[in-house]
Amino acid sequence: MRLRSALASHAPTAQEIGRAATLALHDELALSPKPGLVTPTDRGSHDDMDAHTFMRSLFALRGYFVRIAELGAAGAPFEALEQCGIAAEARMLAATGGINTHRGSIFMLGLLCASAGALAAQGCRPTPALLRQTLATCWGDALSVRALRPSKLPGGMAASRLGLRSASAEAALGFPTLFETAEPALRHARRRGLPTAQAHLDTLFAVISVLDDSNLAHRGGLEGLHFAQAAARDFLAAGGAAAPKGLQTSAAIGKEFVRRRLSPGGAADTLAAACWLERMG
């Protein structure tokens, strides 16, 4: 991975941080098969979007990740980051005809890019530990206040109604699922020698198994969320993507997700963030 090896030797520029974010979102889109989510050849559980919709969104967001990294480098307050994200969401919706493809990643990857920018301004490479520490130091208080706001989005409202940890709460806690589950899972898969697709698939299922995914909760209630988590745990316990029929098992789980109209969008955002961490490593 040329970008990753190049970045490992110096503090990255805002352009490099942003490019890694765009490529990480493409990493997530390219993964197939994956349960209930859009792939290059499958709409998953979605009738209103496909891979072309996601690509239009990616092109619309390229400049956002660079800009928010620049804001992080400048020590901007959370309000400036939030306004930058709101503007990016408007560009996404304009590019997709009003379809939400990357709202979660605008929030999550945006904050990570800002943290990387802040570290780069100090001449530091953005390691997972430093990124999490920087996020908490620079914007943790503001994120904690934000997490108390009543959400007007379907996933946030479902999380509140069902007593789940929302995406805002995940951010206020420093993205524990990303740093304590997804990043270690991807690193472990790489150390085992798994090829990229298998490593990403195992990482995705590791996240699904533990995350309070508000998109799953919105679409399937607690029953749907718990079904998805149990299916992910069983998939990993049976050997994951490297098992003799791992990909067939993943595809079969995906068919059941589609039948139930489940889509683990929060897990997809977290996988993209893990891919970004790897690219920045």
Rank of each mutant, 00 (worst) to 15 (best):
Q229P: 06
A6W: 13
G246A: 12
A238N: 14
L93Q: 10
C138S: 12
E180I: 02
E28K: 13
G72D: 01
A114M: 01
D42K: 09
G193W: 05
S144K: 15
A74L: 08
D27I: 09
E256W: 07
A238L: 13
G220Y: 13
R132I: 00
K255G: 07
A171Q: 14
L164G: 10
L194Y: 04
A230R: 15
M157S: 13
R91F: 05
V38W: 05
H200N: 13
L7N: 03
H26F: 14
G265T: 10
A24M: 11
S151H: 07
M157Q: 15
G266M: 11
R19C: 01
P184E: 08
A60Q: 00
E89L: 09
M280N: 01
G72P: 00
K34Q: 11
G246K: 10
A129V: 11
A136P: 01
M157D: 10
E223W: 04
D27H: 12
P126H: 13
R2Q: 08
A231I: 01
A241M: 12
A232V: 11
R132A: 00
R233G: 06
I253K: 09
D234S: 13
R191T: 06
K245V: 09
A242W: 04
M108E: 02
R279F: 07
C124A: 14
G281R: 11
G163P: 04
A242R: 15
A80V: 04
D269K: 03
G110L: 02
G239T: 02
L204A: 10
A21E: 05
G224L: 05
R261E: 08
A189C: 14
L135W: 07
V66A: 00
S144C: 14
A274E: 02
A232D: 11
P184S: 12
L109P: 07
M157N: 08
T41F: 09
M108T: 06
A114Y: 01
